[in-house]
Simulated assay, not measured.
Amino acid sequence: MLIIHLLFHLQDGHFVPNLTIGAPVIESLRKHTNAYLDCHLMVTNPMDYVAQMAKAGASGFTFHVEVAQDNWQQLVEKIKSTGMRPGVALKPGTPVEQVYPLVEGTTPVEMVLVMTVEPGFGGQKFMPDMMDKVRALRQKYPTLDIQVDGGLGPSTIDTAAAAGANCIVAGSSVFGAPEPGDVISLLRTSVEKAQPTT
């Protein structure tokens, strides 16, 4: 399944060094769109943000496995109880095996986000070796939504799609393009072509 939606990075200045948008921006946008508002929280205490993101109108809530080792099951249950879709992200240095329990849990996450750059700053170079994680996830969980974020654009999309990613986050390559729509179309086509036929 190909998923196209708006992704927002929320950073607390602690898990990653800089600060970004928060719930008020999500709330403002929700008034003008029915789009899927996917929120990737690069924060130290994701539990603290669940209620406010749900109230603001977020559709998806992706937290980092590195900060949720002790309470991930409770966190996922809380996210789902608000009607948001739970996802888990992992940084480049985190072994992919750390997310397996979250995919296989009694109340599982519904998406895994493989960071293909170090989180916190846009415009970084795509790390192709992260595709080993994507391939491992796709082989182990054929129907799982697998998102990749960082350095995705026309020159890297085929690599990510072929590895099994079906949710693509693209920032600089889209917003920096003379014709953003053309880039979005190219990314979409690459992912659609790589999807298994059923």
Rank of each mutant, 00 (worst) to 15 (best):
G122S: 00
V117K: 03
K133S: 06
P196I: 11
K55P: 07
R188K: 13
F61Y: 07
I3D: 04
E104G: 01
K91W: 02
L19T: 10
Y100M: 09
H64L: 12
M53Q: 07
T159M: 12
N71E: 14
G153T: 09
T159Y: 08
L187A: 06
P142H: 11
A56G: 09
K125N: 15
L37W: 06
R135P: 08
V191F: 01
V103Y: 00
A163Q: 11
V117D: 09
S185R: 07
F61S: 10
V99G: 00
A35T: 12
M130W: 14
I157K: 08
A161G: 06
G151H: 06
I146W: 02
P17T: 05
V96G: 01
P119N: 11
E118N: 14
K31R: 15
L29P: 07
G181R: 04
D149M: 10
F175A: 09
A56L: 15
G87D: 03
Q147R: 14
H40K: 04
E97Q: 00
G22H: 11
I21A: 04
F175I: 15
T159F: 03
V109W: 01
V16N: 03
H32W: 13
E104C: 02
K78N: 08
K91D: 13
P180K: 14
E118W: 12
V183N: 00
P154S: 03
I184N: 09
L144T: 00
D158Y: 02
L102S: 07
K78A: 11
L37T: 13
F8H: 09
G57T: 13
T116I: 14
S173P: 10
T159Q: 13
Y49C: 05
T156V: 03
I4H: 11
L41I: 04
A163R: 04
A56Y: 02
H64V: 14
F8W: 08
H14D: 09
P86K: 02
D145N: 11
P86I: 00
K31W: 03
G153Y: 10
P24S: 07
Q195L: 15
V148W: 02
L186Q: 15
S190A: 15
F175R: 12
A54G: 13
T198L: 10
V76M: 03
D38I: 05
V76G: 00
N34L: 13
P24H: 07
F8T: 08
T20I: 05
F8C: 12
E179L: 10
C39P: 02
Y100F: 14
M115Q: 06
G153I: 11
L90K: 05
A136M: 12
D12I: 03
M111W: 06
Y49I: 09
A136W: 05
Q74A: 15
A23W: 00
T156P: 09
P142I: 11
Q73K: 04
E97D: 13
Q139Y: 08
P119E: 12
I157G: 02
H14N: 10
A56Q: 10
L102A: 05
D129R: 06
Y36I: 14
P101I: 06
A89E: 11
V25S: 01
E192M: 08
K125D: 10
V16R: 07
T159G: 09
L6P: 06
I184F: 09
P128F: 12
D38Y: 02
T159A: 03
A194L: 13
A51G: 07
D129Y: 10
T62N: 10
V50S: 05
